[in-house]
């Protein structure tokens, strides 16, 4: 399934309305970690209508690391 943000085919369903009503389902992208509910507004969950500013382009590993992994200490 295609992620609505990074557009990679790396999304899958991970939750649904717990009362069994089928009121909504939720999806997660295993690549960029975007999640969404199928009942949200079009400008949030439709890639054609989302603000391009908030789409995720480029490689995940190129994103800024705010807290770098420290060097390992020998115990």
């Amino acid at each position: 399934m295609k992620c609505v943000r990074c557009l990679h085919d790396t999304a899958a369903k991970f939750a649904e309305a717990p009362d069994g009503s089928g009121a909504w389902e939720m999806y997660v992208c295993s690549r960029c970690n975007f999640t969404w509910r199928n009942t949200e507004e079009d400008e949030v969950i439709n890639p054609e209508k989302r603000d391009p500013y908030f789409q995720l382009k480029g490689n995940i590993e190129d994103l800024q690391v705010l807290v770098p992994v420290p060097p390992l200490k020998k115990s």
């Binding site: 960029c32 999640t35 949030v44 603000d51």
Partner: peptide, 10 residues
């Protein structure tokens, strides 16, 4: 719930 429309999730 998603707090703001362009948050990455809940």
């Amino acid at each position: 719930f998603r707090i703001n429309a362009y948050d990455a999730g809940c």
